[in-house]
Design a protein around this nucleic acid. Structure first.
Length: 274
DNA sequence: AGTAGGACCTGGTGGC
DNA sequence: TGCCACCAGGTCCTAC
């Protein structure tokens, strides 16, 4: 569930709150989320200083001195939490980091769809986790024509294409539905059938909607996401279709429908999305 | 080649 | 009240 806006919210917070801090007392509870053995995580991170925090799609990149980078993917239930000193670690914690000032950084992921990997900077370009990450929608250097060319030859539903991380990185099920509603395109439409004006609308909807969601700290649905300080994102109250099947469309008041597209539940307006 | 669908995992929910 | 089947999601893997 954490998608680009939620991960970007965390990136800014982690960098703002923790850049320059030394990670002491690193404890890794062995779990399937670790793609680096727990012992190697502990040995590699203990005493390291966090320099900066980047993002590729939904993956956080925590760069440390000593030439190492920690990759963190939140899957659908992952959280990074900054806890006060001497508080007990929350349930389902996998990685806990004692900081210099006594606070504790916790990575937890109840459903374990996320992953954590520690890599040498020199090896980053070879990692399979990063190989399939495409263009970042918030990077303004791309024209709508370049965006549109990515749809050429794609035979699947337009929503399935939006979810493919190798083309456009960071969009998940929630924002895909919201973007398609804003662009007035049905999720089941074949990607190759979109007209140039529709692709232009979609391009702007992707950028505008994700930027708005970032500015509100992302979306917290069923409390699946909270930020570094345990607070929910505020974009949830602006959702137009996700989680609203059967309710009236905010634009034309037609009852919203639900369908399965690309194996994912999808909500859309059968009237004003064509 | 490109697409579709299942597996992974577990908390929450709805039905009996 | 208690139990169980089922659903949600992102990504990887396998099957067409």
């Amino acid at each position: 569930m954490p998608e680009l806006p939620e991960v970007e919210t965390l990136r800014r917070q982690v960098e703002g709150a923790l850049a320059g801090t030394v990670w002491e007392r690193v404890t890794a509870v062995p779990a399937s989320v670790f793609r680096t053995p727990a012992r190697d995580l502990q040995d590699g991170l203990a005493g390291a200083r966090l320099l900066r925090v980047g993002r590729r799609g939904k993956i956080l990149l925590l760069a440390f001195d000593g030439g190492q980078t920690l990759l963190v993917h939140l899957g659908m239930s992952g959280q990074l939490l900054l806890c006060p000193p001497v508080s007990p670690p929350p349930r389902h914690h996998h990685l806990t980091v004692g900081l210099e000032d006594g606070r504790m950084l916790v990575y937890r992921d109840p459903r374990r769809f996320g992953f954590v990997r520690l890599a040498r900077d020199a090896d980053l370009s070879d990692l399979r986790e990063l190989a399939g990450v495409g263009h970042d929608p918030l990077d303004g250097s791309r024209s709508w024509e370049e965006f549109a060319s990515g749809f050429a030859g794609r035979a699947g539903a337009v929503k399935a294409v939006l979810l493919q991380q190798d083309m456009l990185a960071g969009i998940g099920n929630v924002y895909a539905d919201e973007i398609l509603h804003e662009a007035r395109v049905q999720p089941t439409r074949g990607a190759g059938t979109l007209t140039p004006p529709e692709k232009k609308n979609l391009f702007h909807a992707v950028r505008d909607l994700l930027a708005r969601a970032v500015s509100l700290g992302g979306t917290s649905f069923d409390e699946a996401f909270v930020d570094l300080f345990g607070r929910p994102g505020l974009y949830g109250m602006h959702l137009k279709v996700y989680g609203r099947s059967g309710e009236p469309c905010t634009r034309c008041h037609t009852r919203l429908k639900e369908a399965t597209v690309g194996g994912r539940s999808s909500v859309f307006c059968p009237h004003c999305q064509v």
